[in-house]
């Protein structure tokens, strides 16, 4: 076969780009059932919140080393996954790129789309060996972007990233939900995900960076708008997610109430209106308090069950880019 095109993949930008791409790939392949907010919640992706001190637009995707962030997210869905990524300036890139051409096409041959950093994240939905191209969906446009095999991975950012998926095992829903709140706690508690860089804050500290950035008046306007839109959308996702699983444990019911109040409080913040910024800052302060209370509920829930994954030191987690 010299090509394939997965018509059933339909990525739509609504959530974080990775979540949108993941949802498009998994639902088309029959590897996930349910609404996008459930995927966003169960994978913990909804809880990721990072802000650059100047409110630059890349804040939204700068939630850590992607391998380490996305790996546990996908593992919680019971899926086998593999990825490759790195700096395109490194001498071994060409080899890894050529190798990836092989396994990307293998995945597409199996009928499973591939997540690809355009940027931002999109989906490789097909290839054509005669022309030597991939068809890539970015979630905004009806038309595919065309990426030449030899340009795969090369973009205006310094890094490339590709992820594939395969089989699934069933993981009981309550286990998935428990793990998702633990992922949320970790994100909330980790101030910096891309050390040694301390210009990008995560979780609770991200609120402070956002408020300080807005207060300073010296911020990237497009970035600020994007951060706030993405933030509002993900808080709505969390609220919807918790609404569906709140009956599992009373702590989740409590957390749901806090997130419902939070989502309401920030629903109409924006930078456009008169006094928009000062109102946004005020609402974000309230939201931070509410989210703190919600995460405390997560902690109460988490403490009721052993957490083997976090009681043993790993041999693969956080590292700095080298």
């Amino acid at each position: 076969m010299s090509g394939i095109y997965l018509h059933e993949i339909n990525m739509k930008r609504e959530s974080k780009s990775f979540t949108d791409a993941l949802y498009a790939v998994l639902t088309a392949a029959g590897l996930f059932e349910g609404p996008k907010y459930m995927l966003s919640g169960l994978s913990g992706m909804a809880f990721k919140f990072t802000v650059h001190e100047q409110l630059l637009p890349f804040s939204v995707t700068a939630y850590g080393q992607w391998g380490l962030e996305h790996g546990p997210a996908i593992d919680n869905l019971g899926l086998w996954t593999a990825f490759d990524a790195g700096r395109t300036r490194h001498p071994t890139f060409r080899f890894y790129q050529q190798d990836a051409l092989r396994w990307i096409r293998e995945s597409l041959d199996r009928g499973v789309g591939v997540i690809y950093w355009i940027p931002e994240f999109g989906v490789i939905r097909g290839y054509d060996d005669d022309d030597g191209v991939f068809y890539v969906q970015n979630g905004w446009s009806e038309d595919d972007e065309i990426v030449l095999y030899d340009n795969m991975g090369i973009n205006f950012t310094p890094f490339w990233y590709v992820r594939v998926f395969a089989e699934r095992v069933e993981v009981p829903l309550d286990q998935q939900v428990l793990e998702s709140v633990r992922l949320a706690i970790h994100d909330w508690d980790t101030p910096f995900k891309t050390l040694p860089d301390k210009a990008i804050a995560s979780g609770k500290l991200a609120y402070m960076f956002l408020a300080q950035g807005l207060e300073s008046g010296q911020f990237d306007e497009g970035g600020a708008k994007y951060i706030i839109d993405s933030y509002k959308y993900s808080r709505l996702e969390i609220k919807q997610y918790l609404a569906d699983v709140r009956t599992l444990w009373p702590e989740l019911d409590q957390a749901y109430s806090f997130y419902a109040e939070l989502a309401e409080a920030v629903s109409d913040i924006g930078l456009g209106q008169d006094g928009g910024i000062s109102r946004a800052i005020e609402r974000l302060r309230l939201a931070e308090k509410l989210e703190d209370l919600a995460v405390d509920q997560f902690r109460l829930l988490s403490a009721q069950y052993p957490d083997l994954k976090r009681s043993i030191v790993t041999r693969w987690s956080a590292h700095t880019a080298r």
């Binding site: 593992d75 019971g78 899926l79 071994t92 890894y96 190798d99 089989e167 095992v169 083997l308 041999r315």
Partner: peptide
């Protein structure tokens, strides 16, 4: 160039890996 994989053996996805 290499390929590697790793994890905990007590997680549900381990048999797939």
């Amino acid at each position: 160039t290499c390929s590697s994989s790793m994890g905990f053996n007590f997680v549900p996805t381990f048999p797939l890996y």
